[in-house]
Design a protein around this nucleic acid. Structure first.
Lengths: 206, 206
DNA sequence: GTAGTTGTTGATCGTCTGGTCAAATCCATG
DNA sequence: CATGGATTTGACCAGACGATCAACAACTAC
């Protein structure tokens, strides 16, 4: 038993290798669609070795989800009540869009989990996530009441930001099927469009 | 072999029962996560009987996806080049939102498939879907050029409509976890928010 | 260098799952 | 009511998959 948590150099390296490989596989195939063999192969380890570092397939998945949740919410946390309302929200939108471009696997990992009813992270949604959203919704509501932002339902504003930005990660294959870009040039158009849309929708009418 | 396609009363009934049950199961668990046993039980049939009506698990899934694609695109098809631009698009948004409310299983079926790289419907995306989107994007572009609509990238406008509306079906569990509604009252707020957002973003500046 | 701990893996187990099959049952028609 | 096709299912199969374990290899501390 690991009483004193050894955490050797090897442990740190292999656990990280496994996380990386598992993120690849889980985000592409979902929990049920992913196999330990796939993850083991992607990590360059044997299957029993995987289970030496993590007690089960589900443990790897849960670890990924909880580790990532914090990073995932960072942009919303950064929404500053003291900043300019419209600028703050547009900055949040662009930051989220950047994350969809840079971290599509993380986005798809959550999407897979939530579409299927979030069986493994429901408590995070009604806990940590709801708490943060409630707090920031209040900030937005105050901006609206002060006339510094068009009057909008803050919760649905946040939902729309999540959906429009994460769409470029979660539905990437569809976006590419339609736009047929050679690389990531369509992200520039997305940035321009979303900046226009949220600026227009949120700027208070004189 | 079914040379003359019998299609008896029983066949029609059972195939429909299977489709209904499969939609339930596939939309909740994804293709890989769904099992024939689950579908058989939901349909009230034995597993071999399922395979008497469909040649394989994949055949059921493909049948669902292709059958549904047509209905799914209907609202976009209805976008009328001769109508009032802003009204047409807002009406499209609300119709899509209604579909998310009334047909969440269909939305999740597609979401599951696309998040995982659309392995079974890629041809529909680059074919039927792209064709329709290209056509309607042209309509929108013309509206913008005529000054009847704010100048926006029509493709990204369409993506944003898909994502904001389908979010209420695909991420239902997250929306409910945060808003904790007792029923579907949050859809009214969503309708109001989206109407405001698209009206503000699309109305040409005098 | 050697003892003891940590790390690694081939072989294997039990279960699940998509799919098959032969036998049984149902049912429309003459 | 008899006949033949349509429908139904219990039993079964082969492969995949998560997990275990005993044996072996590598590393660390003394």
């Amino acid at each position: 038993m690991n009483h004193a948590k050894p955490v050797t150099r090897i442990q740190r390296r292999n656990r990280e290798t496994i996380r990386e490989a598992a993120l690849d596989v889980f985000s592409q195939h979902g929990f049920r669609g992913a196999t330990l063999d796939q993850i083991a192969q992607a990590a360059g380890l044997s299957k029993p070795n995987l289970l030496y570092y993590f007690p089960s397939k589900e443990a790897i998945h849960v670890e990924l989800l909880s580790h990532l949740m914090t990073d995932w919410l960072e942009p919303l946390r950064a929404l500053d009540a003291n900043g300019d309302p419209v600028q703050e929200i547009v900055a949040y939108v662009l930051r989220k869009l950047d994350m969809s471009q840079e971290l599509p696997r993380e986005s798809r990992l959550f999407a897979n989990e939530i579409v299927q009813g979030a069986p493994r992270i429901m408590d995070m949604i009604t806990g940590e996530l709801k708490e943060l959203v409630d707090e920031k919704a209040e900030v937005i509501r105050n901006w609206s009441e002060a006339g510094r932002l068009a009057p909008v339902n803050p919760y649905h504003l946040i939902f729309s930001i999540w959906s429009t930005t994460q769409h470029y990660a979660d539905f990437d294959i569809q976006v590419r099927g339609i736009l047929q870009p050679t690389g990531a040039e369509h992200f520039d158009d997305a940035r321009a469009f979303l900046t226009h849309m949220y600026t227009a929708a949120l700027t208070p009418s004189a």
